[in-house]
Design a protein around this nucleic acid. Structure first.
Length: 568
RNA sequence: GCACCCAUAGUGAAAUGGAUAUCACUACAGUCUUCGGAACUGUCAUUGGGGGUUCGAAUCCCUCUGGGUGCACCA
């Protein structure tokens, strides 16, 4: 519809002497001002030496003379020169029908048809806790993966994890010096040992030496005892991450590890030393400011000849392109990595100019505790797991009184608990920091994931009741349609546009905002209408509307990585 | 010091350069509704300061103030 209208306006402009005019169509803030609105008259008035309102009137006449306007009931010129379009009853009736027909496919678009997109997100490190920052990255990355999928792309999900480096040595030192046997311990305990090791590294010279020694042995694998702890700890923490992914609903196609990327990156850096990279004070560096004054120099091989994180990142980038050759490679990380990533990507694009336009780095704000910045080094972390458990526990308390089986209650606790967390992350635009406040995140009122789920459950409950009464739609064409168009219908058809916009800006929060508006429209409808009424001829159409709502909400929640329960 | 990001009701957020800046929480006043009250209806309050561009600025530019992040061998 939107494209069709845009084209009609373009043709009309052409007739008035404006070639290739850019047309912006928007939904007016107030539904009273129409369903679509354009500002073209104000944009081109000056060029034509006309008063915007007069031009708007002329465009209106041009438009009215055209074919293919069946869906438009009325065109009006308003305000400073806006042209407002009012869609017909027919249009809304048809759009509800389309939603029912498309079902799970409703909302998809073709913007990335035939393309492959790789999305890298979460990036927790073995031997360190999975903290709420990882939860944030996971929620965002998963949502972007799904939005990209809905835009027609084949999505490849990737996770990059640091399984070597000083943090591992610190954790192993902590384990050795804990005085406890480790075999029966879990990931949480390993995280605690990491915090102790990190503290010792900063405050005790002898410990620092021991940890540096361990770090070497992790690389060269000459100490059987350390090898044993290493493979045990790596497995325990990775398994723990896997459990969290399962609850969160993420399934990765690739796991990349720093230990594997290091030699690949090293080779590339050495091959390009003298061309891209250069020696400086015994290290190999990349002077990015030579190419872009806003960038800076970074070390790729330190003076001991060991690869830094930058080199591993190069190895990773090249590996991704060689293995999957994605059309777009998206990486989501916190904003702290922003400047660093620009330097690495500049280096990569000098080596492989064809990769440059395909690399996208999305940065998000930080999730902080109300009390201050979290640090896994100091041990004052709220782990992702504990947060999930807390959130799920609150839900379980809420459903304790309901007549549900234990299994159902557990399932609801998981689905709704995850939704509370994910929604509180995804409702804001990516740039902003989120100050994490437990009380607020578990409040399920109003602007929250559980509110959206609850609204969907109300809808499916009605559908179930109607089915029991044998009120079923057998032929959509025979439905008796009420004259009045509800706000719900005026909101439903916009879903596809919202998904497309969310993709082109890579901002999942547009979907969250839209769904909250949609839920509100549904609840208003629900609150003011008796939907199932055997004696009312409009009942079947209202049921179609409820069903269209349920499909839209379910698909929208899916894009946020949230499941829609049947009961709650 | 330099660079990048951010600043919207009491609080947390939204707003493709557009119309009367939207939503939620809180507070207060209602609905007791049948189909799930985790709901609905109503009231209150806001674009950090100063310039500029534009028919039109929360949005773009400059500047000031306040906050965050990053700047050579950590990741």
């Amino acid at each position: 519809m939107k494209e069709k209208l845009e084209n009609l306006i373009k043709e009309s402009l052409k007739n008035l002497g404006i070639e290739d005019g850019a047309v912006i169509l928007e939904h007016p803030a107030d539904l009273k001002m129409g369903d679509y609105s354009t500002n073209v008259a104000m944009v081109y008035a000056k060029k034509l030496g006309m008063n915007p309102r007069d031009l708007a009137e002329k465009i209106k006449v041009e438009l009215s003379a055209r074919q293919g306007l069946a869906e438009i009931e009325k065109i009006e010129v308003a305000g400073a020169g806006f042209i407002n379009f009012y869609l017909s009853r027919e249009f809304f009736t048809t759009s509800v029908k389309d939603i029912l027909k498309q079902g799970e496919g409703w909302g998809k678009n073709e913007l990335l048809s035939g393309k492959k997109v790789m999305v890298e997100y979460t990036q927790p490190n073995p031997f360190k806790p999975f903290h709420i920052g990882h939860l944030m990255s996971n929620a965002i990355g998963e949502s972007i993966s799904r939005v990209v999928e809905y835009s027609g792309a084949h999505t490849v999900r990737a996770n990059y994890q640091g399984d070597v480096g000083p943090h591992v040595a610190k954790a192993i030192w902590g384990i050795i010096n804990s005085g406890e046997s480790y075999e029966d311990k879990r990931a949480l305990w390993i995280g605690e040992q990491y915090a102790k090791g990190s503290d010792a590294y900063d405050n005790n010279e002898d410990s620092k030496k021991e940890i540096d020694e361990i770090n070497k042995k992790v690389y060269d694998k000459t100490d059987d005892g350390i090898n044993k702890i290493y493979s045990w700890g790596r497995k325990v923490t990775l398994d723990a991450f896997e459990e969290i992914y399962k609850i969160l609903g993420t399934k990765f196609d690739y796991y990349f590890f720093e230990s594997e990327m290091a030699p690949i990156g090293e080779k590339i850096v050495h091959e390009n030393t003298g061309k891209v990279f250069e020696e400086s004070d015994g290290a190999i560096v990349f002077k990015a400011e030579k190419y872009d004054p806003k960038l800076h120099t970074r070390v790729f091989m330190n003076s001991k000849g060991l690869p830094t994180y930058e080199t591993k990142e190069i190895g990773l980038t090249i590996t991704k392109f060689e293995k999957e050759n994605p059309d777009i490679s998206i990486i989501t990380t916190a904003i702290e990595q922003g400047e660093y990533m620009k330097v690495v990507q500049k280096a990569v694009s000098l080596i492989h100019p064809d990769y440059e336009s395909r690399m996208k780095h999305i940065t998000h704000g930080m999730m902080r505790l109300a009390t201050g910045k979290m640090s896994s080094r100091k041990g004052n972390v709220v782990t992702g797991e504990s947060l999930l458990r807390d959130s799920m526990d609150v839900v379980r308390e809420k459903v304790a009184e309901r007549e549900l089986t234990e299994e159902e209650k557990n399932n609801i606790a998981e689905i709704v608990g995850v939704s509370a967390l994910k929604y509180s992350i995804l409702r804001s635009s990516l740039g902003s920091d989120i100050v994490y406040d437990f009380e607020k995140s578990i409040s399920f009122e109003g602007d929250s994931g559980p509110y959206l789920q609850y609204t969907a459950v109300r809808a499916s409950s009605i559908l179930k009741k109607a089915d029991e009464l044998e009120l079923r739609i057998t032929n959509y064409e025979l439905l008796i349609i009420p004259e009045e168009v509800t706000t719900l219908e005026k909101t439903l058809y916009q879903f596809g546009e919202v998904v497309a916009r969310s993709y082109s800006l890579l901002e999942p929060h547009h979907i969250a905002t839209y769904l909250t508006e949609l839920a509100s429209a549904f609840n208003t409808f629900y609150g003011n209408t008796i939907i199932v009424d055997k004696n009312d001829p409009h009942t079947l159409y209202r049921l179609a509307l409820v069903q269209a709502f349920h499909i839209t909400m379910k698909n929208g929640l899916y894009l946020l990585g949230i499941k829609t329960p049947e009961k709650m």
